[in-house]
């Protein structure tokens, strides 16, 4: 029971730490995205970089904060497919 409690406590701390790391990553990516947008001079590749950075943020929120990582593969696949399709179409049209 003590081991189970310790594991539980450890998991909670690790989970919270992961959330904190995710938040720091998200804020850094937001600042980086803003930096890249200032470099914008009509280059299509800048648009792609901004979209990919935003896509990473999207995945981080879905998988860490929404705990999608624990879900059935169908839901993970659905979110990743949607995002890939979205970024792909926007980039193709840009």
């Amino acid at each position: 029971m003590v081991i189970a409690f310790s594991c539980n406590l450890f998991n909670t701390i690790v989970m919270q730490k992961k959330d904190i790391y995710t938040l720091v990553l998200l804020i850094l990516l937001t600042i980086t995205t803003a930096f890249f947008s200032n470099l914008e001079n009509g280059l299509k590749v800048i648009g792609l970089i901004i979209l990919i950075l935003s896509g990473i943020k999207f995945i981080a929120v879905a998988f860490q904060f929404m705990e999608l990582g624990k879900a059935h593969n169908f839901w993970k696949g659905l979110v990743i497919s949607f995002l890939t399709l979205f970024i792909g179409i926007i980039y193709a049209v840009l």
Binding site: T33, A34, F36, S37, E40, I46, G47, I50, L51, L53, S54, K57, F58, V61, A62, F86, I90, L94
Partner: peptide
Amino acid sequence: LIWLLLFPVIYLI
């Protein structure tokens, strides 16, 4: 999630 799609497309690219 919705905002993470709106922000780059409307404000940045």
